[in-house]
Design a protein around this nucleic acid. Structure first.
Length: 565
RNA sequence: GCGCCUGUAGCUCAGUUGGAUAGAGCAACUGCCUUCUAAGCAGUGGGCCAGGGGUUCGAAUCCCUUCAGGCGCGCCA
């Protein structure tokens, strides 16, 4: 729909520009707010006004005349051409050009949806460009919490969108398996293990206090018995630490899997060190004169770029910082040949962005290739009361608990009903108890209703398959609600494109709710299966179109599309 | 103190990258099940888009400023 208008207007503009001789602006096309104004509109005349130094309405008139006289197929006959595609082309307001399509146009649009199915809903924006999205990347020092869940839902949906938009997408989880935090987990497990066996060693200050730490200790005891009892941490710490974080990592992987999120690659931070990549990246910076020593530590001159402070890469104790691995990691990602790398972070890490951008600049890597999506905090509520979350104290609600209690579909859908960068209130009881009022069911119910229709049609021996919804078969669709519904279906590609370009999955969520709404209204008002076979087939065709688009959208969100409810 | 984000209906949030008379879902109130799933439909009420200034044909959207809230500003990750 958008493409058709863009093409037609583009042709008209190119012809007219022989006379104007200006730099043509992009043709922006939008859905008018009010249905009555038209099906689609362009603002290009207003944009041209300053360029051509003419009033926008005059320009709009010229464009319309050009379209009617010289562009529209199949002949120069204005009446005929207009009848095939447009009911009306009109100027409105300050210079909008509003297009109103014919029923025939909508029938054809539905027909190509039915013929091409999902492929007609995707686009080739990416043209095979390699893009990598890194998300979740939770420290393997504890279970995933609800904030990670939001990141997982958004990241996964975004990847689905980008794939459908023709990008070659890789989903990556970065494992922070180096550094102090995993060591602290090891110490915590060590202490619990000793305590379990009656050796009351002190629990580390700021250690991880969650029950899962004891679980790991128990697990080690059942597998390996008491062999580490009274062994100093210096001797067995490494083994315990390794075991512990790998265990956590396995749990994280399981949680994600049950949430319906899978990764293509798990990149270990340790591996970067072991392969000498961290050292070599720092070395490269040093050779560029961007590394210096001060106070016994090694620093990166980030202030030469856009950061407001220089940053330590190697601590006084000789250990590399997390930032050092991150320097290496981001360079490495681009070295791996990705055209774009997207990092999805918790919004509390926003201060980190200038640092990484500085790094890319330091390596002469184009920083436009690096994009960050920030995920705002989730406030978890129970009965409208905030649940306080503190990881260190061990008092928090895990993603696992939420999935078990509320279910993955509802959880994901709620995460995806808001822009990533805006706060989200997640009330477990509202999500669960009022599940009938939950928007996810509204959308799924539309899908289930249609599925039910097809089952019944089949029982009555009516099938839209085989008999073929082609050519004139869709002509009986004449009701307002039917045209409205087709129009909604044909808007999907516009919404999808917008979601892909802006990296905003929530647009799909909103669209699906609207589509379901239009469908429910239609379903209530008009009977699909009737004695009129031609009409029944046409309406089933329309329903199949809705089903295809609902299916596509739900797949992108990672939410199931049930045949029955 | 500096930086980033947020402020839209009673509540939770959208708002097509600057477009037309500001939108949805809850909540409230009215109706609709002998008809393909009422997890549904139809309708009513509800707004100084935090306040103020600016930019232009046009601002919830961009710039400046004030106020309010959140988050950062480690040789943690």
């Amino acid at each position: 729909m958008k493409q058709d208008i863009s093409d037609i207007v583009q042709k008209a503009l190119e012809r007219l520009n022989a006379k104007w001789g200006v730099a043509l602006p992009d043709i922006e096309v939008e859905i008018p707010r009010d249905e009555a104004m038209g099906d689609i509109a362009t603002t290009v005349a207003m944009r041209l006004a300053t360029l051509c130094k003419k009033p926008p309405r005059i320009i709009a008139e010229e464009i319309i005349a050009e379209i009617k006289n010289n562009i529209l197929p199949p002949s120069s006959s204005l009446e005929k051409g207009e009848r095939d595609i447009f009911d009306k082309i009109a100027i409105a307001g300050p210079g909008f050009i509003n297009f109103k399509f014919t029923q025939k146009y909508f029938h054809k649009g539905l027909q190509s949806l039915l013929e091409e199915e999902h492929s007609s809903l995707r686009a080739d924006i990416g043209k095979g460009a390699k893009i990598q999205v890194e998300f979740v990347s939770a420290n393997p020092t504890g279970p995933l919490h609800i904030g990670h869940g939001r990141g997982a839902a958004v990241g996964s949906a975004l990847c689905n969108i980008l794939k459908a938009a023709g990008y070659d997408v890789q989903k990556e989880f970065y494992i922070n398996d180096a550094g102090l935090q995993v060591k602290l987990l090891g110490r915590s497990v060590y202490a619990r293990y000793q305590q379990l066996l009656g050796n009351e060693v002190p629990f580390p200050e700021d250690g991880y206090k969650g029950d899962y730490v004891e679980d790991i200790a128990h697990d080690i005891h059942t597998r390996e018995g008491s062999r580490y009892l009274n062994t100093p941490f210096e001797e067995c710490g490494e083994a315990l630490t390794d075991y512990s974080y790998k265990m956590m990592l396995a749990h994280i992987g399981d949680d994600l899997k049950d949430f319906g999120v899978v990764f293509d690659n798990w990149q270990s931070e340790r591996a970067l060190h072991e392969q000498g990549k961290v050292e070599s990246a720092i070395h490269t910076l040093r050779s560029k004169g961007l590394i210096y020593e001060k106070d016994g530590a090694v620093w990166f001159s980030a202030t030469r770029f856009e950061d407001d402070k220089d940053r330590v890469v190697r601590k006084k104790d000789g250990e590399y910082t997390y930032f050092a691995s991150d320097i290496c990691y981001h360079k490495d990602k681009l070295d791996r040949g990705f055209d774009t790398i997207i990092d999805i972070w918790g919004a509390d890490h926003h201060g980190y962005i200038p640092r990484i951008r500085s790094v890319l600049e330091a390596f002469d890597l184009p920083k436009e290739k690096f994009r960050v999506i920030l995920i705002q905090m989730v406030s978890l509520l129970r009965h409208g009361v905030p649940v306080q979350m503190s990881k260190r104290a061990g008092a928090f609600i895990t993603l696992r608990e939420v999935i078990d209690e509320v279910g993955p579909d509802i959880t994901k859908f709620i995460f995806l009903t808001r822009k990533a960068d805006s706060h989200l209130e997640f009330d477990i009881d509202v999500a669960k108890e009022q599940s009938a009022e939950n928007p996810v069911f509204y959308v799924q119910y539309a899908f289930a209703r249609i599925s039910s229709l097809f089952r019944q049609a089949e029982e009555k021996g009516v099938s839209d398959q085989g008999s073929g919804i082609r050519g004139e078969a869709l002509a009986p669709l004449k009701e307002n609600e039917e045209i409205l519904l087709i129009k909604k279906l044909l808007q999907y590609p516009m919404v999808f494109e917008g979601a892909a370009l802006a990296c905003e999955p929530h647009r799909i969520t909103y669209y699906l709710q609207e589509l379901a709404g239009v469908f429910h209204a239609y379903y209530y008002k008009h009977r699909i299966i009737s004695d009129d076979k031609g009409l029944t087939l046409a309406r089933l065709g329309l329903c199949r179109g809705v089903k295809i688009v609902l299916d596509e959208g739900l797949k992108i969100l990672g939410v199931s599309a049930p045949e029955r409810m």
